[in-house]
Amino acid sequence: MSAPDDLLRVSAERLLVAIRDILAEKSIVSPAEIADRIAITEAASPAQGGRIVARAWVDPLFRQRLLGDGTRAVEELGVVMRGAPPLGVVENDGSVHHLVVCTLCSCYPRAVLGYPPFWFKSASYRARAVRDPRGLLAEWGTIVPAGVKLRIVDSTADYRWMVLPRRPEGTDGWDEERLASIVTAGDMIGVTIPKIA
């Protein structure tokens, strides 16, 4: 049996403990730093992204900062971006709709949206997002009108991209919390648009 085969037979828990102990012993990363990173990773979720979108909808100056430098803008809201790739935000409006994909692997703005939905990593989503995007969106019930340009953002390198969707009609006077509650991960990837329940 080769060494890699042996590794596959060891329980993940034992491997994790062994690696964590070695990292601590060599003073590369302390157990406290690892626990800290796990807490940061688990705090990120689409709800956090929804909070960012809602703030951009009600605060035009924040929206401007968000589109200019996503990382710095979301740090204002308490999102921890330390150690995360830079965040880019692309805005949907009446003339362009954005759709984010990573055709090469599964790059996703985890720092703001948490773990990617399972389909985001699927070969069929990654292929169809660039080859047949309007057909793909139609299956989500998202019809991009003929006069609206569809811009597919293929996340290939150092940035992570998130979509700032359009604020739906009928939400005048809503507070940020209520606005945030209607924003889903799909809306911030661009496969869907925010809907009032």
């Binding site: 660039v130 080859r131 569809l150 811009r151 597919i152 290939t156 390198a157 150092d158 940035y159």
Partner: peptide, 27 residues
């Protein structure tokens, strides 16, 4: 240096609507 580069989607795959585009990070 890293750039955002836009490509007309139809030049790559002929099906679909004319002015859709793909935006990619390229070194």
């Amino acid at each position: 240096a890293l750039y955002h580069v836009a490509f007309p989607r139809q030049a790559i795959w002929p099906e679909g609507q004319g002015d859709d585009e793909i935006l990619i990070e390229i070194y």
